[in-house]
Amino acid sequence: MAAYVVRRLLSMLVVMCLVAVVVFIVARVVPGDPAAVMLGTSATPEDVAALRARLGLDQPLLTQFGLFALQIVTGDLGESIFLNKPVLAAIAERSELTLLLATMAVMVSVAVGVPVGVISAVRRGTAVDQAVIAGAMLAASLPSFWIGLTLIRWFAVNLGWFPVSGYGEPGAGLLERMHHLVLPALALGIPNSAIITRFTRSSMLDVLTEDYVRTARAKGLPAHKVILKHGLRNAMIPILTVVGLTLAVLIGGAIVTETVFGLPGAGNLIVSAVLRRDYPVIQGALLIISGLYVLINLVIDLLYAVVDPRIRY
């Protein structure tokens, strides 16, 4: 196990080096001069040139990349051009909301997707199965922003059960924060629950035809024990994989939902950074999201051995 973890960590290092190169190039391919954006339309070319020199944007690209790589090695992602604060501090201020939102959305997806997928597999070919398949296709095709706006209209405006937008007062507790995130989590979790439903159904259909499941039924075990202990447990590998990938995608893909609900999360910060051509924030956010994605994949791989003791690395 230890040797496997070391190999994976080394491969993660290689992947992050490639990600750093891609992030640096993509940030500078985006049209627009951050110095000109900061100074506005009334700035003179001399003022823009002076600001570019102060920010180091007048250096050759190789020099800029060398400085960027040195910052990454030393754990310093630079300073935001517009916020005038370290990039790590700016992202850390917004990360709590995004991580909590992604976690709640995954919980919604799993709470809906796994039971519905199991029921669909157990009742294969029936009207229930067909209804689940149709519902999953419908949920997957609905954009999260439309779901969010619909939820706001009915549960926030008409019924008044939840706030329309925001993240609570500055000193709000965790329960109040979570109350503000219920509707955004539903808007994100419902479309992704369709993916988990389809994977759960497919994995369960494969397992329920195995000999050990038929043997368990022949021994007279209760149906719920056959389904949960012998069926679902052995079908958890692909389900666990899709749940982990869903969490990684939600962490980096909550931008639209945060915009719809007016949430000051990391997604909102990235959008503002792109519009303002704030290179350090763009680069730092993309690196952190990529690192989380790779780390989640590693954790999922290690959990395989916990779910299925037959797996050895």
Rank of each mutant, 00 (worst) to 15 (best):
M1E: 02
A3T: 15
A3R: 15
V5Q: 09
V6A: 01
V6H: 09
L9T: 05
M12G: 06
L13M: 07
V14G: 13
V15Y: 02
L18I: 06
V22N: 08
R28I: 04
G32T: 04
M38W: 06
M38V: 05
G40M: 11
G40D: 13
G40L: 03
E46H: 06
D47V: 12
L51Y: 03
R54I: 01
L55P: 01
L55N: 10
L55D: 02
G56V: 00
Q59M: 09
P60C: 05
L62G: 12
G66I: 01
L67P: 13
L67W: 13
F68Y: 14
A69T: 13
I72S: 13
I72G: 07
T74C: 02
G75I: 05
G75T: 07
L77E: 06
G78Y: 05
L83H: 13
N84Q: 14
K85A: 13
I91S: 01
I91V: 06
E96A: 10
L100E: 14
A102Y: 01
T103D: 08
M104R: 13
V106F: 11
V112S: 13
V114M: 09
S120Q: 00
R123S: 11
R123I: 01
R123K: 15
A127C: 11
A131F: 10
V132H: 15
I133L: 09
I133S: 09
S141D: 00
L142R: 01
I147D: 11
T150M: 09
I152F: 00
I152T: 04
N158C: 02
L159D: 11
F162I: 13
S165R: 04
G168E: 00
G173V: 05
L174W: 12
L174S: 04
L175D: 11
A187E: 06
I196P: 03
I196T: 00
T197P: 08
F199S: 01
T200F: 10
V207T: 07
L208A: 08
T209A: 14
Y212N: 03
V213W: 07
R214A: 07
T215K: 13
T215D: 00
A216K: 05
A216C: 04
R217H: 12
A218Y: 01
A218M: 14
A218Q: 07
L221R: 01
H224E: 08
K225E: 14
K225S: 08
K229I: 08
L232S: 04
A235E: 07
M236V: 04
M236H: 07
P238C: 14
I239N: 01
T241L: 09
V243I: 12
L247V: 04
G253W: 12
G253L: 04
V256K: 03
T257G: 01
L263T: 10
L263K: 03
L263H: 00
A266C: 08
V271F: 08
R276K: 01
R277K: 14
R277F: 11
D278H: 15
V281G: 07
I282D: 03
I282F: 05
I289L: 15
S290E: 00
G291T: 00
G291M: 12
V294S: 03
V294D: 13
I296V: 14
L302Y: 10
A305F: 02
R310L: 11
I311Q: 04
Y313T: 04
